[in-house]
Each structure stands twice: as C-alpha cells, then as structure tokens.
C-alpha cells in the first residue's frame, strides 16, 4: 500500500466519547443517493477494485448494526414507530456501527465504504417534520467522511429503475407513512421530490461531490474510480 499523507479525522459535533481520533488511519467514503440509483452496484465494483489494488475494505450500510438492525426492520414491518422514534432508532444503529465496526476498521487502516450515512437519515427525518437543527445536532456524534459522493438524478430517472426491481414501489421508499398521495406511485413522486430538495439543500453545507447518476453504470463507475483514486493519492 502506498504511504499516505498525515490524516486527521474530526467529528461533526461533540462526537463519541473515548475515541482517539489520532489513531484512525483509514479513509471513510460515503455513497449517498436515492433509492434505486445504483449505490450498491457501485459499492460492489469499487470494493473489488480497491481490494485488487491491495486496500482492505469494509462495506457497511443502514440498519446493518448488530444492536439495532433487527429492531428497526421489525418496526418498519409493522409501520408503527413514530417519526421521531424512528429517527432515533436509526441514530442508535449508526452509533453502534460507528463504535463497533467503522471506527475499529479505520483504526486498522481500512477503507470504509458506507452505503448511505447521516445525510439520508437527516433528510428522512426532516421530510417527516423533525426540526432540522435538532436532527443535525443528534448526528454530531458522527465522523466527518473523507468524501461524500452523492449520486443524483431527478425523480423521472428514478421511476424506470424502481420498475426494474421485482418489489416495485416500496412502502418506505414511497413515503407511504406520510400519506402524500392516493397510491404508491403518487406518493413516491411527491416523497422523492421532497427528499431531493432536502438533499440538494444539504449539498453545500456538507460538501457533497455530486455525481451525475443519469449516466450509464460504467461511466459513473469510471468517474467514482477517478475521484477515489485521487483521494487515496492525497491530491
């Protein structure tokens, strides 16, 4: 592995107690973007590429924590948690993964690729009526990533992608809990439009690298490869 320039992580806010940021060696890379945009495809390809270049990679994503993952899935199954409780359940999941997965991996020098991060969680909470300053302060516990790639496309581009999946319009991805439309399609359009607006409003504050996701999988991949390559060379 190439030797890397001196690197220092920061938290967004007060952070997690008992963590020595100076010990963290790896890189934290976030892939964000709406449902069906192809995040997991890109992560799979990037992981193979990075590993073949000799980097150790941890890939993780929402609700994969040992502590809270199952509970969140069950709560979503029954559609019974209120918006604030659900937002905090996700925060528990993220904190558990940060403390037990991502930070240990970074300490060991891994490249952590995460399929979504706090930005999706903040956007979902805001769209559901949470006070923006409040939910952003909750995520003061999170590490600032080295790069945030936001795969962006308008709602018209998302619809054909959703229709390609056998599940079609998912309850949560259509924001059905918000009662925005007569059916899942109407609701999906309204919900994703609102999510997109919140995401766009966060782009500058959090420094998103916007990736045009209306292009082919291959072109997007080349673009991400180029940017991540540059990041790892410390340029």
């Amino acid at each position: 592995m190439q030797h890397r320039p001196k690197h220092k992580f920061e938290f967004y806010g007060e952070g997690l107690p008992g963590i020595d940021l100076g010990e963290l060696q790896g890189r934290l890379i976030v892939i964000e973007g709406p449902d069906g945009i192809g995040r997991s495809t890109q992560i799979g390809m990037l992981k193979s590429w990075l590993e073949s270049n000799g980097h150790a990679v941890l890939d993780t994503g929402l609700t994969r924590s040992e502590l809270a993952g199952m509970g969140i899935e069950q709560a979503k199954e029954g559609h019974t948690l209120g918006p604030i409780a659900l937002a905090l359940f996700y925060a528990t999941d993220l904190a558990d993964r940060l403390e037990n997965e991502m930070i240990p991996a970074l300490r060991a020098g891994f490249i952590v690729l995460t399929d979504r991060y706090i930005y999706s969680l903040i956007a979902r909470a805001i769209v559901r009526g949470a006070e923006p300053e409040w939910i952003k302060s909750v995520y003061g516990l999170a590490l600032k990533p080295d790069a945030i790639f936001y795969l962006r496309a308008n709602v018209n581009h998302l619809i054909p992608r959703v229709l390609r999946s056998p599940a079609g319009f998912d309850y949560w991805e259509s924001g059905m809990d918000l009662h925005l439309g007569d059916d899942r399609f109407d609701s999906f359009v309204e919900y994703q439009t609102r999510m997109l607006a919140v995401f766009d409003s966060m782009a500058e504050q959090y420094g998103f690298n916007v990736i045009d996701a209306t292009r082919s999988i291959d072109l997007m991949y080349k673009d991400l490869q180029r940017r991540i390559g540059r990041l790892l060379r410390g340029i």
Partner: peptide, 15 residues
C-alpha cells in the same frame, strides 16, 4: 456503550 445506551433509551422515550 454509554452512547448507544443513551440513544436506545431516547428512541424508547420518543416512541
């Protein structure tokens, strides 16, 4: 951990 203990109880109280 102290953080997840705190967050899971806040989830509960929010509910």
């Amino acid at each position: 951990t102290p953080t997840t203990f705190s967050l899971i109880h806040s989830t509960d109280l929010a509910d």
